[in-house]
Design a protein around this nucleic acid. Sequence first.
DNA 1: TTACTTATAGTCAAAATGACCATATATTTA
DNA 2: TAAATATATGGTCATTTTGACTATAAGTAA
Lengths: 237, 237
Amino acid sequence: MHISFSMPKKPSPDQIIDALSIDCLIFGFNNGRLDILLVKHGEGISKGKWALPGGWIQYNESVNHAAKRILHSLTGISDIYLQQLSVFGDVDRYPGKRVVTIAYYAMVNEEHYSLIPGFTASDVQWYDLHQLPDLLYDHTKIIQHGLKQLRHSVRHEPIGFNLLPKKFTLLKLQELYEAILETKFDKSNFRRKLLKMNLVKPSTEKQQDVSHRAASLYEFDEQRYQQLREKGFAFEL
Amino acid sequence: MHISFSMPKKPSPDQIIDALSIDCLIFGFNNGRLDILLVKHGEGISKGKWALPGGWIQYNESVNHAAKRILHSLTGISDIYLQQLSVFGDVDRYPGKRVVTIAYYAMVNEEHYSLIPGFTASDVQWYDLHQLPDLLYDHTKIIQHGLKQLRHSVRHEPIGFNLLPKKFTLLKLQELYEAILETKFDKSNFRRKLLKMNLVKPSTEKQQDVSHRAASLYEFDEQRYQQLREKGFAFEL
DNA sequence: TTACTTATAGTCAAAATGACCATATATTTA
DNA sequence: TAAATATATGGTCATTTTGACTATAAGTAA
């Protein structure tokens, strides 16, 4: 049996937890299509391959902090609401080493962020959900799981507003839900239902530069949302 | 700087991943009350303290497998549907060492299992949710999070049937939902709504040994549930 | 002016909901 | 044995919500 003569090592603060990684599944929305943010690896054995933005957790940071840091360093995206998705911990999911990964997910408006590849990423890009390249490790599985989660959440929680501009028309909101759920809603009924929930409030502005009657712009009413939440409000589509 | 002269160690199969643990939040249901399964530590510095059943992940097992193994070895409970709840990864959540934990949760019928303390546990017990002892680490936080999750799930998915006997009356089902959501339903309306969903099917049997008119016993219709799932059925209470 | 496009309001029958009431069927008590 | 009681189970009914449509409004483009 091999016995090390070294003393037990107290990890230095910026040393990583080597069996534990983070991967971020970022959904974007772009005229009717759902996109996913991918990075191209610029180093090591996986150089040139595409994957979800991911990396290692340091000893002196929380897991949630690590997720934000990693996403920012690889893609330039920051200040978004990253939520835990799931842990992927099969024995052979990562080559040559035992690595358990914690997947996070978020939804963002593509136009709000410029993509800046950094750290070990040589490229960052939005990919149409239906035209993804081959991905490293079990990242395809992570995406499938995330989609399932997204479709469930979007029916039972008022999410998805992050995918839209601050001010949006009701039709855009409808198209977003239709893209996520891959279904169609009746325009009139959708509008009626959503307005009755009071989650969106009308702004005074209207759509600009459209070749037809301009629609009113609405915005998500965060305050109202908090009020409803306290009452045990159940969002349902 | 300290440099170790030992070779990089290839972990032996049953060696543990030392920065990563698992904790299990098991809900039980007992005449109208929600319970939580706790174990008393029988060894080490935390000896005598109560906590959620938890332990370390081995190199040669998946994370999901570890959860089942740990729960079984400490409490005797096996063959249940353990689901991931969340990861708790604050820097100081565990004393003296950086440990990220993956929390799992499940619901079981208390009568179906006998509790057998094993491994490092000197005792196992169901505790009324509202009368928990002091718990180790951040386990109180894990329970709070799990409750939130449970309350959300129970309104949007047909779960909770695991908490009941195989055959149950509609009133017992109602009492279960009332205990979880801490609310009251109208008996007649609850019955009408649930029966229309077709998720429970009547058995030929009736309640025994009650001092009033015996109610019909129903059981969860797994097949019907799968059918409905494929159609994109939305359970809502 | 007309055609075309999308916005927005309204109609109406059917289904679901919430608050009740009524009766049925069992046990326990007087 | 009759009455009291407890819960089961079914029904009523006004109100609300839904789903499928129709109609009109307000713009641009030809």
